[in-house]
């Protein structure tokens, strides 16, 4: 009997010995998060990903396993971020017609907007005395996660802090775009979509698709171009400046 109890107590370690436990936990938490999100009537300040991350953190805290055991397994899932970045070529190609038609205003505004999105945060944090590691984790905060992750590793930032920064930025951008566009009386869906994609990366793009298909298309355009532009410029500027 006690033998059975012993093996039951060791069960969590068995589950998390291979990546399968961590992957199952991530998927289960994600679907539960989406379900709870619907039950809570789509609160814009608390996207399903946050609910799911809290659920996973709670499970890890309750079970006799550590964050490292979870990360080891979840790394297998995050490997997909690489091919997922390559897959962004599809929305980018679909928008090429729109980009060609609007290339002038986009070329004028997007690099500046993408630069400001990064500069404001780095400047505020620097003025408030944040160390270099924190600045490197905040700089790619408006870029879609697969690009932001490789950027922050390149600059020497903390992955965990960047992830938190990405979440906070996404939620703030969604809230900010909705509030400011109402205040500035902007109803142009292309504009709202671009602003959501440039400032709020994947989270903003998901929100833009909820507003309308056109807003979503422009948001994925804003997100892809901000990602590509920041990926090229940020490492250059960072190494010149540092």
């Amino acid at each position: 009997m006690s033998e059975l109890g012993m093996s039951l107590a060791a069960l969590p370690q068995t589950w998390f010995a291979t990546p399968i436990g961590a992957i199952a936990l991530t998927l289960a938490a994600y679907f539960l998060g989406v379900h709870l999100f619907k039950l809570l009537r789509h609160p814009s300040w608390c996207p399903p990903v946050i609910i799911a991350a809290l659920l996973i953190a709670a499970v890890i805290a309750l079970l006799p396993i550590g964050i490292d055991d979870y990360n080891r397994g979840a790394a297998w899932l995050m490997l997909l971020l690489g091919p997922a970045t390559v897959a962004l070529a599809v929305p980018l190609y679909q928008q090429l017609g729109q980009i060609r038609a609007l290339w002038k205003p986009i070329v004028l505004t997007l690099p500046l907007s993408a630069t400001l999105a990064s500069c404001y945060a780095v400047l505020i944090a620097w003025l408030l005395g944040a160390p270099r590691e924190v600045l490197a984790s905040l700089a790619p905060k408006s870029v879609t996660s697969p690009i932001a992750l490789s950027l922050t590793q390149e600059l020497g930032g903390s992955t965990a802090l960047l992830m938190g920064a990405l979440m906070t930025t996404g939620i703030t951008a969604i809230f900010g775009v909705e509030w400011l566009s109402r205040w500035m009386r902007i109803r142009d869906q292309r504009l709202i979509g671009l602003a959501l994609g440039i400032n709020g990366h994947a989270l903003g793009t998901v929100r833009a698709f909820e507003i309308s298909h056109q807003a979503g298309a422009f948001a994925s355009l804003g997100m892809s171009l901000t990602g590509a532009f920041t990926a090229i410029v940020l490492p250059l500027v960072w190494h010149l400046w540092a």
């Binding site: 994600y30 399903p48 991350a53 890890i60 979870y70 996660s145 992955t159 965990a160 979440m167 994947a202």
Partner: peptide
């Protein structure tokens, strides 16, 4: 994409 970001958020 959102699902793939999540494991990083937990940390």
């Amino acid at each position: 994409l959102a699902l793939l970001i999540m494991p990083g958020v937990v940390e």
